[in-house]
Design a binder for these strands. Structure first.
Lengths: 332, 332
DNA sequence: CTGTTAGCGCTTTCAG
DNA sequence: CTGAAAGCGCTAACAG
């Protein structure tokens, strides 16, 4: 590819003038500038980022290295990566994403990341979890997006699951639903614990005793079968007429399975039983029949804020909880 | 960050020896090697990719620049990007992904791509479409993944929609289904045309006249409402008993809507009506009740082959059709 | 306003 | 087996 030298030769100037024409055009004689730009155009010249980077100057723009987890298992969450990239680009930064499939990432991948000499690092996971952060990464500005760290003094941006579940249940109760049934995420999961707290807070405020709401925790292995089984059990125990008026699901996938089962039993949503999801799976939640009321995991926001944290050089090394808005559709 | 010099000083050798220790360890005295590696370890030294790249040597490994389209609108297709990355890494190459939101991509993004001095370029889209390839990109080895080009002499890896639909319908007919109803993708779409051909081929082979199978083409605007309407119309025209035994859907989303509607009507799948999808949406198709039989869009394979095309420096500048396997689950 | 020099981190080439 | 010199593409600092 063409280099400054080539452009310089074609324009009949020194390489330095080419550099200036591109970086500080106001310091160049208009006529010279025109000649240079014309040469740039003709050669399709674009400065090499590597060369700029190596000089350490400001001209190249800064780079964020991203270690992305769970992209394979939670593809719907790519929005977070998109948002990182967009936000960075808006500020003249660029991102470099490395998808990783194990935690902690193998040294090989870490070296690859470091070999790009990023000015900041984002460690992201699309499912709420606690990650162990390799010590080497701590030498640079570092933020976690969508996950927590085993160490306390690292900035993290995570969904506010407690508040999200609280708001959703509160709204449901305000609409008059009184006998919820919960099909929760696996008990050991972080999100599950937080949401349970949110649920309890809403229940307590409404004067509903916790014991009055039946709960089932799925195991990680077979959400599908267990959801079906639990529903079948509940329904047959009450002769096909549900003894719950609101089904609170640990995520939209559980809600999807439940929907189909309920529909197949001749039950109407939300007249016979309302359904509440969690996640707001992009492009799917809208396709529920009727469209699913759910709580949104704020992937876009988390990505944006984590990126801005780096760009604005914020010094707030603690957990930032990002709101999970309730997306009210027709299933309640 | 530490550089060769730092390591050299600490190990008491010249920078050159450090370089050799890392790249051609067999040419270095074992004792010296050990000293160097120890220094490398202590300083967490990782060679700068930029510096390597700039030298143009072979040591740095090559880079593929990826222009990715549709990531936002077709999130479940990230598998293709993952596969690019994985395949490249397996061969010591690295990838650099730039998500783009408009076609053709704005010059700004193209320059960004070029500024990384990629050794090859992959233009990818996750929905089958014809893309206009900016002329500048044609200077380097170039492949399209998941999409076609307006120009003929560019290598493309795309799903074999015709064959995929053909196989699926053929299998359905072999199972005895005789009265299909189709709810197709929008008529103007590329995939729609190809699949129509596949459908017709299977029908013809089975001696079923095309006119005998009712087809509805959804518009791009409201797949949801139109699917529902069409089904409602069909069913009420025949007093709730479907006059079709197989519902062929343009994609899994249509199938999802249809599923819920059919289930809600008290119809059993597949006893009363079988359903066939297209796409095999990862993490969703399995959640259908019963699990959806569908045709898989070969995102992983397309990504892999496109990457290998570059790595192996293949000279086959034409359309490569990647098979779409039929994923047989329980909806037929 | 423009050019020269020097150096970023690395590795190829050539000498020891 | 090891080192010195030179240069990749670019730009900061200085000189003209």
């Amino acid at each position: 590819m063409a280099s400054v030298k080539d452009v310089a030769r074609l324009a009949g100037v020194s390489p330095m003038t080419v550099s200036r024409a591109l970086n500080t055009p106001e310091k160049v004689n208009p006529e010279t500038l025109a000649r240079v730009l014309q040469a740039v155009e003709r050669l399709n010249y674009v400065p090499s980022l590597s060369a700029r980077q190596i000089r350490g100057g400001t001209s190249g723009g800064k780079t964020i290295g991203v270690l992305a987890f769970d992209t394979a298992t939670t593809p719907f969450a790519v929005e977070m990566l998109l948002s990182l990239e967009q936000t960075a680009r808006e500020h003249g930064w660029s991102v470099f994403i490395l998808n990783v499939f194990e935690t902690p990432p193998c040294p090989q991948v870490i070296d690859l990341l470091l070999s790009h000499r990023p000015d900041g690092i984002i460690f992201s996971a699309m499912q709420l979890r606690v990650l162990q952060v390799p010590a080497v990464l701590r030498d640079k500005p570092l933020v976690l997006s969508g996950c927590l760290s085993t160490e306390a003094d690292i900035a993290c941006y995570v969904p506010d699951d407690e508040e999200g579940q609280y708001c959703a249940v509160k709204q449901a109760l305000e609409r008059g639903y009184r006998r919820p049934l919960c099909i929760n995420l696996p008990r050991h999961s972080l999100a599950s614990t937080l949401r349970q707290q949110g649920l309890q807070r809403a229940l307590t405020e409404a004067g509903i005793p916790l014991e009055a709401v039946p709960q089932y925790d799925i195991s990680a292995d077979d959400a599908y079968g267990e959801t079906l089984d639990e529903l079948r059990r509940r329904l047959s125990a009450s002769n096909g007429k549900p003894d719950f008026d609101l089904l609170i699901c640990g995520n939209d996938r559980i809600a999807l399975v439940a929907y189909q089962y309920l529909l197949g039993c001749g039950l109407r949503i939300p007249e016979d039983v309302a359904v509440l999801g969690y996640d707001n799976m992009v492009g799917v939640a809208e396709l529920f029949y009727p469209p699913l009321t759910t709580v949104q995991l704020p992937y876009y926001e988390m990505g944006r804020r984590a990126t801005l944290h780096l760009i604005k050089e914020k010094h707030e090394p603690f957990i930032h909880r990002v709101p999970c808005p309730v997306i009210s559709r027709q299933s309640w």
